[in-house]
């Protein structure tokens, strides 16, 4: 984890409350402790984001996951202030984002952030290339230059040959590629994705997820990714924040969520996951027993269980999990089978 670098985005005690006299809710200890229904009855307010804090490291893919109504879309809109947070602090590259005036905010949106939307938000009256160039156009970039830039990004997302089409002539997956290209065209530091693939078919969704992974390798941008799909979160996210009713329940890497769920909600959430594809050996290794032969094969603790399965089952001795020449633990058939057989145990 690149956690030792100073964070790109830093969020502390962030609240977003909708309703009359919203700002009173986070201030009052009593009101802020109320549940959704009681808060509605008492004040007519809904708290979409409650007391959320996290840091995002440069180059990280940070996933916010939750069911609908959990406040995840509101949270991401608070990060670029499409929605004004009610209270808390929000720092971007050391700058207090909440102090930015309208002009500075526009500048940041033009140069530093961009966003990909669930329903694409393309301009139906413009061709693909003009859609991609829109962000550059409103910065005042000349036509030749912005078209050149747009064509580069169009090639990057695999849309070459479609630049003259109109959005409604493209499939959903292609339209989202246009949305992606538009977001990349401005060469931003941070990309926000608001459930970008929820409206797509499963197969196309998988393609697009791979596309995002590829782009992340190629351009290395910091990404904040909103989703309600756990497998998507596990696939893309360096770290995952789970939200429920506006509150953060747990933040961690995929194997941390699966290996050590913070509460029953998360446990229930991750119960259907194929654990052997998420957990690494460090979650299943045990201390060596006196009778264990300690000359089996060696594997790193970050090897996924399903990758280690064959090695462990083929070896008649437990394998050793080593780091820097130090024995961390051992993994035998019993531990491996415990994970693989437990897939159905949760249900």
């Amino acid at each position: 984890m690149p956690g030792d670098l100073s964070p790109v985005i830093s969020v502390r005690d962030l609240w977003k409350v909708f309703g009359p006299k919203a700002e009173a809710v986070p201030k009052s200890e009593e009101l802020s402790a109320l549940g959704r229904r009681e808060l509605m009855d008492r004040t007519g307010c809904t708290a979409a984001v409650r007391d959320v804090s996290f840091d995002i490291a440069p180059g990280e893919v940070f996933v916010v996951m939750g069911l609908s109504g959990s406040g995840k879309s509101t949270l991401v809109r608070c990060l670029n202030r499409l929605i004004e947070p009610t209270s808390g602090t929000l720092t971007f590259e050391g700058e207090d984002l909440l102090a930015a005036d309208a002009a500075r905010l526009r500048e940041l949106r033009r140069l530093k952030f961009s966003m990909v939307f669930q329903h694409f938000g393309l301009l139906p009256h413009r061709r693909v290339v003009e859609n991609v160039a829109y962000g550059l156009e409103i910065r005042g970039m000349g036509k030749t230059e912005r078209t050149k830039k747009a064509m580069e990004v169009i090639e990057l997302v695999g849309l070459l040959g479609y630049e003259k089409s109109y959005p409604d002539q493209l499939s959903g997956g292609m339209q989202q590629r246009v949305g992606l290209a538009r977001a990349l065209a401005g060469d931003p530091d941070v990309l926000f994705f608001d459930e970008p693939f929820s409206a797509l078919d499963p197969l196309i969704r998988r393609d697009m997820q791979n596309e995002v992974i590829r782009l992340h390798h190629e351009v290395g941008k910091t990404m904040v990714f909103i989703t309600h799909d756990l497998s998507e979160a596990l696939k893309l996210g360096d770290r995952i924040l789970i939200m429920r009713d506006g509150k953060m329940i747990q933040t961690g890497t995929g194997d941390e969520l699966v290996g050590a769920p913070a509460d029953d909600y998360v446990r229930d959430f991750v119960s259907d996951v194929n654990r052997s594809h998420v957990l690494t050996l460090r979650w299943i290794m045990r201390p060596p027993r006196p009778d264990d032969p300690l000359d089996g094969p060696v594997l790193s603790r970050d090897v996924l269980v399903h990758e280690a399965t064959r090695v462990v089952l083929d070896s008649d001795k437990p394998i050793r999990v080593m780091e820097n020449g130090e024995l961390l633990g051992v993994v035998g058939n019993e531990e491996i089978l415990g994970v693989i057989a437990a897939v159905t145990e949760g249900s």
Binding site: F117, G121, L122, L123, R126, I138
Partner: peptide, 27 residues
């Protein structure tokens, strides 16, 4: 005009005038 389209325009840093003349009115 689809709210997502307006939101996308704002998120890209359009001024209200740019959103009106380049997004809302043409659409």
């Amino acid at each position: 005009v689809a709210p997502a389209t307006v939101e996308a325009s704002v998120a890209l840093g359009s001024t209200p005038r740019q959103t009106l003349f380049r997004v809302l009115l043409p659409v």
